[in-house]
Amino acid sequence: MTPVEPDGDKTHDELIVRKRGLYRGVFTADAPHYGIAPPVGGVPGPRSAKPSGH
């Protein structure tokens, strides 16, 4: 796999296994917005495309 860090040597699989790592936290929070994974622990899903009226 290709490294995910600029000038780094770690792949996604190597970084995601770190239980308290920053990469894992960001990936877990963003994944539901891209349809990669379901929301976990109260992470909201994507916002509606409807105008808010503001």
Rank of each mutant, 00 (worst) to 15 (best):
13 D>L: 12
35 G>Q: 09
35 G>R: 08
16 I>P: 02
35 G>M: 07
10 K>E: 07
11 T>A: 10
7 D>R: 12
27 F>C: 10
16 I>R: 00
33 H>K: 02
15 L>R: 02
5 E>A: 13
35 G>W: 10
18 R>N: 15
18 R>T: 14
17 V>K: 14
30 D>E: 10
23 Y>K: 05
3 P>T: 12
19 K>I: 04
8 G>V: 11
20 R>I: 00
33 H>I: 00
4 V>M: 06
16 I>G: 01
8 G>F: 06
22 L>A: 13
4 V>S: 05
17 V>A: 12
22 L>Q: 11
12 H>Q: 12
31 A>K: 01
15 L>W: 01
14 E>L: 11
12 H>T: 11
17 V>R: 09
11 T>V: 11
18 R>D: 15
27 F>Q: 06
32 P>F: 09
34 Y>K: 08
5 E>K: 13
19 K>T: 06
29 A>S: 14
10 K>R: 14
12 H>F: 14
7 D>L: 13
36 I>L: 15
4 V>W: 03
25 G>R: 12
31 A>C: 11
7 D>P: 02
16 I>E: 00
32 P>T: 07
6 P>Q: 04
15 L>F: 03
19 K>C: 06
29 A>N: 09
3 P>R: 02
9 D>F: 01
20 R>A: 09
18 R>K: 10
9 D>V: 04
22 L>S: 14
8 G>R: 04
14 E>F: 08
31 A>S: 14
31 A>N: 11
8 G>S: 13
28 T>V: 15
32 P>D: 13
24 R>P: 02
32 P>S: 06
22 L>F: 10
35 G>H: 06
36 I>D: 05
29 A>T: 15
21 G>H: 04
26 V>N: 00
32 P>A: 01
6 P>F: 03
25 G>L: 12
31 A>L: 02
13 D>G: 05
4 V>F: 14
37 A>R: 11
14 E>P: 08
26 V>I: 15
8 G>E: 08
28 T>N: 14
30 D>N: 12
21 G>D: 02
32 P>C: 03
24 R>N: 08
17 V>M: 14
33 H>E: 00
35 G>T: 09
30 D>S: 14
5 E>H: 06
23 Y>C: 14
12 H>G: 00
36 I>W: 15
9 D>R: 05
24 R>C: 05
38 P>D: 10
22 L>G: 10
16 I>Y: 04
38 P>H: 01
15 L>T: 04
29 A>V: 15
14 E>R: 03
8 G>Q: 08
29 A>E: 02
38 P>N: 11
30 D>T: 11
38 P>M: 01
8 G>M: 06
30 D>K: 01
8 G>W: 04
32 P>G: 07
28 T>G: 02
33 H>V: 00
13 D>K: 05
25 G>Q: 13
25 G>A: 14
27 F>I: 03
25 G>V: 05
